[in-house]
Design a protein around this nucleic acid. Structure first.
Length: 214
DNA sequence: TATGCGATATTCT
DNA sequence: GAATATCGCATAG
């Protein structure tokens, strides 16, 4: 029998979560990238709530050659041009979905990539190697983050600030610590811009240790 | 710990 | 046909 045992983390947020309103979000990509640290991303599914505390983000501001919106609006990147607070989800390398939050006024293309979460409610850790079972790994890295939250292309374009959305943002359950910054990860263009933000000391962030400490 | 590689799907040239 | 905002495994030091 293929006994795929599962570990479930149940760290209740105790219903203490408050939905963020659009008015809460800064109308600026870099400001939003910092603002989102410590906030909670929530996905309410038929099988319960999945959530995590955001500990790492990257900004892809207006005019950034590394941003998908740089070459103008296409069917794929259209969500980046929605009013701030909408989800932009796409597939990279044929393997991983990445979740972004649109970050400017309607018609302006820019976004914030969510790179890592600290697991809160319902995050499932598939039994595999010891490595994959570590709780800290479940939401570390943008591809793992979407996997942990069960987010995919169906969520592209959703309004994260709508009162009825199943995917939404919540105010901090716990205050964010000191914020560190570094260059973004995995880029070829604009690789030297310091637009990655993370909670210093968090055990849940991605990337090489060499980027820590600023 | 650090680097390198292949897998994989969609978009754009 | 090339490029890609990644991941996991492999190998080397």
């Amino acid at each position: 029998m293929s006994s795929v045992s599962r570990l479930m983390t149940r760290i209740d947020t105790n219903g203490s979560l408050r939905r963020l309103q659009r008015a809460d979000l800064p109308v600026n990509t870099v400001a939003l990238a910092r603002y989102l640290l410590g906030k909670v991303i929530v996905h309410d599914t038929a099988n319960g709530r999945l959530s995590g505390r955001i500990v790492e983000t990257e900004a892809y501001p207006v005019g950034d050659a590394a941003g998908h919106a740089f070459r103008g609006r296409t069917p794929r990147n259209g969500s980046l041009f929605l009013e701030r607070g909408h989800a932009y989800v796409y597939l990279v390398y044929g393997a991983s979905f990445l979740l972004n939050v649109s970050s400017e006024k309607a018609g302006v293309g820019a976004g914030v990539l969510l790179r890592a979460i600290e697991p809160l409610d319902g995050i499932e850790l598939l039994d595999g190697t010891l490595r994959a079972n570590r709780r800290a790994d479940a939401g570390r890295g943008p591809g793992r983050l979407t996997k942990a939250l069960k987010v995919d292309l169906r969520h592209d374009g959703l309004d994260l600030c709508s009162a009825s959305s199943s995917l939404w943002l919540a105010a901090s359950a716990r205050k964010v610590g000191r914020i560190g910054r570094s260059v973004r990860i995995g880029l070829t263009y604009e690789a030297d811009r310091v637009l990655r933000f993370y909670e210093r000391g968090s055990a849940y962030i991605s990337g090489p240790r060499s980027l820590l400490g600023e």
